[in-house]
Design a protein around this nucleic acid. Structure first.
Lengths: 216, 216
DNA sequence: ATCAAAAATCTACCAATGGTAATTTAATCT
DNA sequence: AGATTAAATTACCATTGGTAGATTTTTGAT
């Protein structure tokens, strides 16, 4: 917005202090700094949407790019870190909902509902992680959130089936299938949120629970 | 690779002819040029993977960037055009397989199998379209292939259910769910192709056909 | 035939951005 | 106190998407 005279985010009149900062020792506040950077990134993404530059993140965190690189690695690492955080928060929220269910079907429905709700609430962040940031290797970017989540889902699925003497080896593939279905429906729904969400939840839950077949 | 002296792909000794080319009239071979450019893009992606620059594409097509922009618009338009082509080819291949089935279940299985096969055969192109190219707005990039395909799938699904007096309004959501499941399983499987493909096909077909439930 | 306007193309550039090298400042060690 | 090391900054590089302006040929009017 306000054009900075410098390539960095230094205020136009002043000069940023250079060199090692006062009262800062080896591996002192490293985790704190990491946290501050990730927080800055999340903030920017929430406010300005999924396209964000490392420069902007560094500036918001009060540092410069090389510091950001030192703390986080490269942009892929940043996206990874954000994905991990989001996956944890998402899993926590969704798991709590699933736990409230009294029967498996209700558990699945809560899962679907929780997923869509969470994605809608963290719209920009969700889109950044699943379709946004990485420079190269965008290939598995789409699976970033999914890889974590799929592992989380595989175990309950396998358990559920084992307890009922059904083939549990499907758990991994089903996890990815489940996540993919949720993800695409989410993307489609987020585009304009034109359809009633409860209807969408019912329909996709029905597909995942009962499948498409009408006869045996 | 071989560093060009020029910023363009001009051979080091020569100078590229400038200006309007001989024997070229308004809207003459426009479609042909478009085709050549798209072909060049596909070739490069097949050979070098999903990361490709517009410069490289233009050079391979024997033109320069401004010409490419005149023919295609911007990079998003290029990705769009490639997605459309791929969607058509994919739909053709898959539809043929589905048509060979004698019962609906077999149709679905052929669909799944055809999707995975096609993606594996056009690995780089598939990844470029679904996870690769677009500059901004990568958001709906993930849905590029899906949007076309989902429309294709929605009608058969609705038909199938209508004929059996089942609720056909699920068709749209199910299409995206189906595509999402296929896409994620495909990405996961393409990562290292470690699992037997027939097993994957069986498992994901089972999920889509019968769902996850074990009891009513 | 001649000359102006329009069309198609290239060269040369710009801006944004991911990433890094060299430099400066402060803390720590001997 | 002086040397070494760690942290951070400035200033830069390379790539790449995109565009402005120069250049050449066709087209069309006089």
């Amino acid at each position: 917005m306000s054009a900075p005279r410098d390539s960095q985010g230094t205020p136009p009149g002043t000069t940023r202090r250079r060199g090692r900062p006062a009262g800062r020792t080896v591996a002192d506040g490293v985790i704190a700094d990491r946290e501050i950077l990730l927080e800055a990134a999340e903030g920017l993404i929430r406010e300005n949407g999924p396209s964000v530059s490392l420069e902007a993140i560094a500036t918001r965190a009060g540092v410069t790019k090389p510091t950001l690189y030192r703390e986080l690695g490269d942009k892929d690492a940043l996206v990874n870190a954000l994905a991990e955080r989001l996956a944890v928060r998402m899993a926590t929220a969704v798991t709590a909902l699933v736990g409230q269910a009294s029967v498996p079907f209700e558990g699945l429905r809560n899962l679907v509902s929780g997923y869509l709700d969470f994605a809608a609430r963290e719209r920009h962040l969700y889109l950044f992680i699943t379709a946004g940031g990485a420079r190269d290797d965008r290939v598995q970017q789409a699976l970033l959130l999914a890889d974590g989540a799929a592992r989380q889902f595989a175990e309950p699925i396998a358990d559920y089936r084992s307890r009922r003497n059904a083939d549990a080896s499907v758990a991994t593939v089903w996890s990815y299938g489940l996540l993919g279905a949720l993800h695409f429906v989410t993307l489609w729904w987020l585009k304009d949120e034109a359809v009633d969400i409860e209807l969408v939840i019912d329909q996709i839950t029905s597909l995942l629970w009962s499948g498409m077949r009408l006869e045996d």
